[in-house]
Design a protein around this nucleic acid. Structure first.
Lengths: 204, 204
DNA sequence: GATTTCCGCTACGAACCGTAGCGTAACTGC
DNA sequence: GCAGTTACGCTACGGTTCGTAGCGGAAATC
């Protein structure tokens, strides 16, 4: 979130309603105008606050958009147990797609990641607010598969394997939605899950 | 490319050196300043041309950057035959990574894709100049695997399966480089190829 | 009530955008 | 050659957004 003042300070506290209104306005403007069309003056006008109020809380466009998008990822952290590895993968794929297919998310995510190429602080912010939460879901699914005996227990292979399976699942969904501009529907999610579980030989 | 005048026209022809200088300057500025820091005035100054010359050839920042990045994808279209499906996948993964890991490509690709969310013409331009060329490599590898008998011949399954395997490979590479900010080195490519060929059971 | 902090408002210089107009350079067809 | 056509460099401009400064007033703590 925006830099919190120390919890108990003298003086007038910051308006929580203003925060909410600004983030809502940011998402609305993103969906409507896209990244390059979004101006902070417009966001402030939509939110009914002064432009200076906005600058007092966020350093700039990048950080504001990250927070506005991150709020969408805060709620949904659960993954229903579907009883099997392949079904669980299908579930997490559909969950990802649901989040990144919204108009405001679609536009914003790629743009802030692009900006993060030249901004380390922004990259950390994105990682903490969005990426790590997605990753948690993938690792949760793997743990369940191990408990069921569908995968062998942890052999101390280190975090590299976690990174691999996460990049494959999240990357496939993002690429499907953003680059190929095709919907992630249950049939597609099913085929992806089957590919991951059984390999190419099982798919073709 | 930028809209070509009809091959034989009267009058002074457009300078090919200027085109080259502009695209080079665009790539240099991208690597140095990132997407949001790139201004067309700066590009013109670097290229040693007038700003108006730049606007005569490209409608705006988006199209210019797409062409500047696409030029990097034009040369490399071959995929050496490594003798087996798994090795070929590893090869195409490393080829992708080599292209999108350059500083100028990394910054630009995500940004233009984000812009394309609200610009259909830009999306088509990206598809024709970049995505379809990558996809060609993936399908080439699949054809070779079929000829070797590693995959069954085409059963008329339609283009959906092509889309799937392409989104998985390209998406994993992009996500690894852009979001996880980790290098795509031969060991990682090898693990990804093994996952795709043998499935999760073979990986863990 | 005094102090501290936040808010809304106005105003401002700076930067970038995209375009117009002009004189000149380069190339083609007669 | 010469006229016609097109591209180029240059300057200038109005418009928009940026990010900041300064002010008076509102809302909280002590």
């Amino acid at each position: 979130m925006c830099p919190l003042p120390s919890p108990k300070r003298a003086g007038r506290p910051r308006s929580a309603e203003a925060d909410e209104a600004i983030l809502d306005a940011t998402r609305a403007a993103l969906a409507e105008l896209g990244w390059s069309g979004l101006t902070l003056g417009d966001v402030a006008a939509r939110a009914g606050v002064a432009k200076t109020t906005l600058y007092r809380r966020w350093p700039g466009k990048n950080e504001l958009v990250v927070d506005a998008v991150a709020a969408l990822f805060e709620e949904q952290l659960d993954l229903p147990d579907r009883g099997g590895l392949e079904a669980d993968i299908q579930g997490v794929v559909l969950r990802f797609a649901e989040l990144i297919s919204r108009p405001e998310t679609k536009t914003a995510l790629m743009a802030v990641v692009a900006e993060a190429t030249h901004d380390d602080a922004l990259r950390l912010r994105i990682r903490a607010a969005i990426v790590d939460r997605q990753k948690h879901l993938v690792l949760l699914g793997r743990e369940r598969a191990r408990e069921r005996g569908e995968l062998p227990p942890d052999d101390g292979g280190g975090p590299e394997r976690d990174d691999l399976i996460f990049d494959v699942i999240a990357g496939a969904v993002v690429h499907r939605v953003m680059v190929s501009s095709e919907p992630v529907d249950p049939p597609w999610a099913r085929r992806l899950a089957r590919l991951l579980v059984g390999g190419l030989a099982g798919l073709y």
